[in-house]
């Protein structure tokens, strides 16, 4: 096993859910094709050049930017892991609220926090691949790793969660009066939440093939207004949905 690609798994400000997904029994056989050089949550020594680095979390402080730049400098390939790294995730809800009010509600003094606007990795550095979803999809991580090892092209699905959901024969949650973002959210989760009866909150970001205009029209007929939809879309990928909204 010489010349295995050198792997790093990092987190900036986040919940560790994504890096924990790597510590999974079913991923181990695939990961054994890599040399784990850096993995701070389980490793004492984390120095050295990398071929591929996975990073979870949202950039929320100047410290995060420093750490992210350092990782970018030492790796050939950088992968944004999870919805925070890909879109800003839950912490990026703050961008759609009154920043000062929110900050002062939690901390009476904020100067020591060195807070910056909650943003995804690609706002600050070049990101080679995105693996969205909260928490990330183990099967998709495995497929990505296999593609990387075999130098095959990896692409995310462009259709919507709605397509996957229908293929599974689920009852439509919109029909049940729930505000489900399935029609405008990117597929790849096998419609996990709607299959459990939970409405889609858009954690895989906007679907390339989706038609937001049509969706808004249809959902208005069901008694929701555009403001409610926009607000719901801020939960995991607000900044990305906002861009798509403006393009429409």
């Amino acid at each position: 096993m010489i010349n295995r690609p050198r792997l790093g798994v990092f987190s900036i400000s986040g919940c560790a859910g994504c890096v924990l997904t790597f510590l999974s029994k079913n991923l181990i056989p695939t990961l054994e094709n890599f040399e784990t050089v850096a993995f701070p949550i389980i490793k004492e020594n984390n120095e050295g050049k990398l071929d591929i680095a996975f990073v979870e979390g949202t950039v929320v402080s100047s410290e995060d930017i420093t750490v992210l730049n350092e990782i970018r400098k030492r790796t050939k390939t950088l992968v944004a892991l999870g919805s925070c790294a890909c879109f800003g995730g839950v912490p990026s809800i703050k961008n759609f609220l009154n920043k000062t009010k929110i900050e002062n509600f939690v901390y009476p003094r904020t100067s020591h926090l060195k807070s910056v606007k909650p943003t995804p990795l690609n706002t600050h550095v070049k990101v080679d691949y995105h693996l969205p979803q909260c928490p990330p999809n183990k099967q998709e991580i495995r497929e990505f790793l296999i593609c990387y090892l075999n130098k095959r092209k990896f692409e995310l699905p462009t259709s919507s969660v709605c397509v996957e959901c229908r293929q599974k024969g689920n009852t439509c949650l919109l029909e049940e009066g729930k505000l489900c973002l399935g029609p405008i959210t990117a597929a790849g989760c096998d419609a996990l939440c709607p299959s459990k009866g939970v409405e889609c909150y858009g954690c895989r970001g906007p679907a390339k093939d989706s038609n937001i205009k049509e969706f808004v029209k249809e959902i208005k007929e069901r008694g929701f207004d555009e403001k409610m939809i926009k607000r719901r879309a801020t939960f995991f990928a607000g900044l990305s949905f906002e861009k798509k909204w403006k393009k429409r």
Binding site: I12, S13, G14, C15, A16, G17, C18, L20, T58, V59, V60, S61, E63, D64, G89, V90, P91, I93, K94, L97, K101, I102, E103, F105, V106, Y107, T110, L113, S115, P118, C134, P135, Y201, F235
Partner: peptide, 28 residues
């Protein structure tokens, strides 16, 4: 750890939306 202001993010949210947010405080 960078401050993510979770309690602030909850303000103005409907009660049934709250667990979607708070579970993201910690993946463990």
């Amino acid at each position: 750890e960078g401050a993510r202001f979770f309690e602030g993010l909850l303000l103005g949210k409907k009660f049934d939306e709250a667990p979607e947010i708070t579970s993201r405080i910690c993946g463990i």
